Simulated assay, not measured.
Amino acid sequence: MLILGIESSCDETGIALYDTGHGLLAHALHSQIAMHAEYGGVVPELASRDHIRRVLPLTRQVLAQAGRTLTDVDAIAYTEGPGLAGALLVGAGIAHALGVALEVPVLGVHHLEGHLLSALISEDDPPPFPFVALLVSGGHTQLMQVDNVGCYTTLGDTLDDAAGEAFDKTAQLLGLGYPGGAALSALALTGDPLRFKLPRPMLHSGDLNFSFSGLKTAVLILTQKHPDPADHADIAAAFQLAMAEVLTAKSLAALKQTRSRRLVVAGGVGANRQLREALNAGVAKLGGKVFFPRLEFCTDNGAMIAFAGAMRLVHGGHPAGVFTVKPRWDLQEMPSLS
């Protein structure tokens, strides 16, 4: 089966073609970073309008790369949520219009399910089920137990800000612009991470939850006390070390709690080099292994949506992945864009 995937949850338009027999055939991604940079964040209306401009040209591009036509498509998967309402509606509208025109099934995919399964796209060394996943991005920071396609249990969640948001806000405080996560990581490489002491929020909370609002406040106070740009590299290094230590400690605790030795790291922050090194070292001590998606699949992308849709079809076409949390959260109770 050939599945066309459409991702439009925020500020990146992603299109991909996944074949259940031959794997990922082609994918393309357009980022709106340059457009939103001058506003210091994503402007929802601008994001929606840009998705409208990009989806069909990117679809034609991907089909051409794969040497296929629309009539070859057997199903269409699109990001149903969560995300910006207008941006999601663009993807949903185009997916359903194509589905009606081609007379093929249309599947709404939960954005987090796409991230959770993104490491399985690799044909070299995909992680076997079950595994623990650290989903760490601009909008989400969660630890999940992944037992199979469509069966996910939340072990820990952020109580306020996501890790990626904390990276971007810290970068703004240091004058690095938006989005500043990558720039902050580059600056941190030149700084002394031990010069300034920042808190490790909820490091000893006894659970697997996260909180990063206090860390952002601590960075704000620190930048006010040390406004000299010469100190910014040390502040960036201290922040990155604090973040890596918290994420690593909680991930290791999740592995011990579930008696698992496989950790999948997904989401944009998963591309951070210091975090990767800390996780690899910590999990190795437990006799386990860390699995990362390809760098191009760490951020939002169409490949993960096409793949999740394909796995849904292969595993019986169930309507949506069920995420069990404490308290319970069932995706089928969420409002549908269908």
Rank of each mutant, 00 (worst) to 15 (best):
L2F: 14
I3Q: 11
I6T: 08
I6W: 10
C10D: 08
T13S: 04
G14H: 11
G14K: 04
A16Y: 13
D19L: 11
D19R: 14
T20N: 03
H22M: 10
G23D: 10
L25I: 11
L25Q: 13
Q32K: 01
A34P: 03
A34R: 08
H36F: 13
G40E: 02
P44T: 00
A47D: 00
A47T: 00
D50E: 09
V55S: 03
L58N: 10
L58Y: 02
V62Q: 04
A64D: 15
A64G: 10
A64E: 15
T69A: 14
T69K: 08
D72W: 12
V73S: 09
A75W: 05
P82F: 04
G83H: 01
G83E: 01
A85W: 00
A85F: 00
A87Q: 06
V90M: 01
G93D: 00
I94F: 06
A95N: 07
H96S: 03
A101P: 01
E103M: 05
P105Q: 08
H110T: 00
L116E: 09
L117A: 15
L117S: 10
I121S: 04
D125T: 13
F131C: 04
V132Y: 10
L134F: 15
V136K: 15
S137W: 02
G138Q: 10
Q142H: 12
V146I: 09
D157V: 07
A162G: 13
G164W: 14
E165N: 11
E165G: 02
A166C: 10
D168H: 05
A171N: 12
A171C: 02
Q172Y: 06
Q172P: 03
A182H: 15
S185N: 07
S185E: 15
S185H: 08
A186Y: 08
L187V: 10
A188I: 03
P193V: 05
K197N: 13
L198E: 14
M202L: 13
L203N: 06
S205N: 11
D207K: 13
L208E: 11
N209T: 05
N209Y: 14
S211M: 06
S211L: 08
F212H: 05
L215C: 07
K216V: 06
K216R: 12
H226F: 07
A230C: 02
A233C: 08
A236G: 13
A236M: 07
A238P: 04
A244Q: 03
E245R: 02
A249D: 04
K250E: 06
S251G: 02
S251N: 03
S251D: 05
K256F: 11
Q257G: 03
T258P: 10
R259Q: 13
R261Y: 06
G267Q: 07
G268D: 09
V269Q: 13
V269T: 12
G270H: 08
N272F: 03
Q274G: 03
L275G: 05
R276S: 06
E277P: 03
A278W: 14
L279A: 03
L279I: 03
G282K: 02
A284H: 11
K285T: 10
G287L: 07
G288R: 08
V290A: 04
V290P: 04
P293F: 06
L295D: 12
F297E: 07
D300G: 03
G302N: 12
A303F: 14
A303Y: 13
M304D: 05
G309T: 09
A310V: 05
A310S: 10
M311I: 09
H318G: 14
G321A: 15
G321Y: 02
T324R: 15
K326F: 13
P327R: 01
D330H: 01
P335Y: 00
S336N: 08
S338V: 12
S338T: 12
